[in-house]
Design a protein around this nucleic acid. Structure first.
Length: 270
DNA sequence: TCCTATGTTGTATG
DNA sequence: ACATACAACATAGG
């Protein structure tokens, strides 16, 4: 499920454990989720450590434990974070459970497309790979120029597909990419290299707008984005374009392997 | 039974 | 080396 705003919502779920000490770590060591960090290393590294805080970057999460232990989580397609009562016993898809004094922090992921990574570093800075991540849409480094450059680097890739590329648009996922194309009135199939300067400027604005509003709704309290957004109409066949004065049927098709929804009437800028 | 699912990644091809 | 395209990963639900 998770894209930018859902990831941010899940991140905050574990805030309930900040300041607590990890008394017990439960894992499912054999599962795919531990393909990068061995479960026993995670257990050894986190037991007895204190949760200091967390940060998010796009779809990535980084939990800081003192001293110098950083637990990176990616939620994949079906991952989620929640809290449970202290003493919670791991269920079938609870692949990581950190039991603190007053609460248990649970990472659940049925499909296991998510990822767990552990970094033990000197000093108080996050690991280098985290500092090297590309600028997020709401950060200063995310400029019109950077967007234009990225589009020209992959000129034949459909715009919607390129919006899913985390190297250029960290945090954007399937529904946000469709939302952005819809707001731009550009068909999702349009080659990224065909956008002119004015369209790139509008794209930059819409990317940031969708991120900002998603964080203020879904990311804040899991509330729905505005009902006039495409997002709330795109899931099933038979949806209609929410744009005032349109309300024509939406179309759904697979684009580069991802379900894509658009309004053939509104999204005609070629 | 078959199809779909809000994500990445390895691999093949040009 | 780089851009492009797709299968694979594992599980649940309609």
């Amino acid at each position: 499920m998770p894209e930018l705003a859902e990831v941010e919502y899940y991140r905050k779920q574990w805030d309930a454990g900040i300041g607590g000490t990890v008394l017990r770590v439960q894992t499912h060591p054999k599962v795919r989720l531990f393909r990068e960090a061995r479960a026993r290393d995670v257990v050894a590294a986190l037991t007895g450590r204190q949760l200091r805080g967390s940060r998010a970057h796009g779809k990535q999460l980084l939990m800081e434990f003192s001293p110098g232990a950083w637990l990176a989580l990616h939620l994949g397609m079906t991952g989620s974070l929640r809290t449970a009562v202290a003493g919670h016993e791991a269920g079938p898809h609870d692949h990581l459970v950190l039991s603190l004094e007053r609460v248990a922090l649970v990472f659940t992921d049925p499909r296991q497309f998510g990822k767990i990574r552990l970094d033990l570093v000197e000093g108080s800075d996050p690991p280098q790979w985290w500092r090297d991540l590309p600028p997020q849409p709401l950060e200063r480094g995310f400029t019109k120029e950077a967007v234009g450059h990225f589009l020209k680097r992959f000129p034949r890739t459909p715009l919607k597909t390129l919006l899913l590329d985390q190297r250029g648009f960290p945090g954007i996922g399937n529904w946000m990419a469709d939302e952005i194309c819809w707001r731009l009135r550009v068909p999702p199939q349009r080659p990224a290299g065909s956008l002119d300067e004015a369209e790139i400027a509008r794209l930059w604005r819409e990317v940031r707008h969708v991120c900002r509003v998603a964080l203020e709704t879904v990311g804040k309290d899991w509330s729905d984005p505005p009902s006039h957004w495409l997002m709330t109409h795109r899931w099933r066949d038979g949806g209609h374009c929410p744009r005032a004065g349109c309300h024509r049927p939406l179309r759904r098709a697979s684009l580069r392997g991802r379900t894509t929804c658009w309004c053939p009437h509104c999204q005609t800028l070629a």
